[in-house]
Each structure stands twice: as structure tokens, then as C-alpha cells.
Simulated assay, not measured.
Amino acid sequence: MIVPPAGSPAPAPESRHPQTIGGVIYLCLLGAVAVGIALVAVGSWRSGVSCIGATLVVAAGGRLVLNDHAAGMLRVRRHRWFDVVVPLASGVAMIVLAATIPDQI
């Protein structure tokens, strides 16, 4: 631990908020996934899985329209196409499966 010399001003506290619009979007999407998981936990699994799928589709759209710097935490890989295609395909698959799986009797 580095101790500042006596009489020197205290260091500024670290920023604890997102630095980019992509970080803000990421936190909102994280909240939406939490809502989807809560819906699944209370028994409305179709709504919950659809919510999570829609969240992935929105994440893909956000990564598509934001540049590399503004994407923040939405930027996972070096190539934008990968960051768009994988969550888009996963989200669409989740929505389609939630809509087409028949009810169990």
C-alpha cells in the first residue's frame, strides 16, 4: 500500500459509474436479464425466457450501432460481427423456442 506524503491532498475517489453509453446499456440489459430470471423462478418460464431473448437481441442491436469506443462493455471480441451475430442468434433462438415448445400436460 502506498502512503501519500504528509500534507499532500487525498487522491480523488475512483469513478463508479459507466464511462460510455455502452456501459449504461449493459447495466440496463443486466437488469432486464435479472427480471427474466425472476420471471422464470416464479413459474412464468415462457415470459422469462422471452425477456432474456429480447435482451440479447437488444444487446446485439446496441453493439451494431455503437462504435468500438462507445460500445464499452458490449464490446467482447475484436470483431464487431461476432459481437452482433452470436447474441442475435441466441436471442432469436430463445424467443422461438419459448414460443414453439408445447405445454406439458
Score class of each variant (00 low, 15 high):
Ala41Glu: 04
Asn67Thr: 11
Met1Trp: 06
Ile101Trp: 13
Cys51Ser: 14
Leu56Ala: 11
Val58Asn: 03
Val86Gly: 01
Ala54Asp: 06
Ile95Trp: 08
Gln19Pro: 04
Arg80Pro: 06
His79Cys: 11
Ser8Asp: 14
Leu74Asn: 01
Ser8Leu: 09
Pro87Asp: 09
Cys28His: 07
Gly62Asp: 00
Ala71Ile: 02
Ile25Asn: 01
Leu56Gly: 15
Arg16Gln: 03
Gly53Ile: 01
Phe82Gly: 06
Val84Ser: 02
Ala54Pro: 05
Thr20Leu: 00
Ala71Glu: 04
Ala12Phe: 02
Val76Gly: 11
Val24Tyr: 11
Leu39His: 07
Phe82Glu: 04
Ser50Ala: 15
Arg77Cys: 08
Leu56Val: 00
Ser90Trp: 06
Asp68Val: 02
Val92Asn: 03
Ala60Lys: 07
Gly72Asn: 05
Val86Phe: 14
Ile21His: 03
Ile52Tyr: 00
Val92Met: 06
Ser47Trp: 13
Pro9Asp: 14
Leu39Pro: 08
Val65Arg: 13
Arg46Trp: 06
Arg63Asp: 10
Gln104Cys: 03
Leu29His: 03
Ile101Pro: 01
Gly48Asn: 06
Ala32Gly: 07
Leu39Gln: 10
Val85Cys: 10
Leu27Met: 07
His79Lys: 15
Ala32Lys: 02
Thr55Pro: 00
Ser47Ala: 15
Val49Pro: 01
Gln104Pro: 04
Leu74Ile: 01
Leu97Ser: 13
Gly31Glu: 08
Val65Phe: 12
Ser50His: 11
Ser50Asp: 11
Gly62Lys: 01
Leu66Arg: 04
Arg78Asn: 13
Val33Ile: 15
Cys51Trp: 02
Thr20Ala: 06
Met94Phe: 13
Gly36Ser: 14
Gln104Leu: 12
Leu88Arg: 09
Val35Asn: 03
Gln19His: 12
Val49Phe: 13
Ile21Gly: 02
Pro87Thr: 09
Thr20Gln: 12
Gly23Met: 05
His69Lys: 04
Val3Thr: 12
Val84Met: 10
Leu74Ala: 02
Ser47Thr: 15
Gly91Lys: 05
His17Cys: 01
Leu27Tyr: 11
Cys51Thr: 15
Met73Lys: 15
Ile25Val: 04
Ala59Phe: 04
Gly61Val: 12
Gly31Gln: 08
Val76Tyr: 10
Pro87Trp: 09
Gly61Glu: 07
Ala70Met: 03
Ile95Lys: 00
Ala34Met: 12
Pro9Phe: 01
Asp83Gly: 14
Leu97Lys: 06
Gly31Ile: 10
Thr100Asn: 07
Val3Met: 13
Pro5Gly: 15
His79Pro: 00
Ile21Asn: 03
Val49Asn: 08
Leu30Arg: 07
Pro11Val: 00
Thr100Gln: 03
Ala32Tyr: 02
Gly22Pro: 04
Cys51Pro: 00
Ala32Met: 11
Leu27Phe: 12
Pro87Gln: 10
Ile105Cys: 09
Pro13Asn: 01
Ile37Tyr: 10
Val3His: 13
Val40Leu: 05
Val76Arg: 14
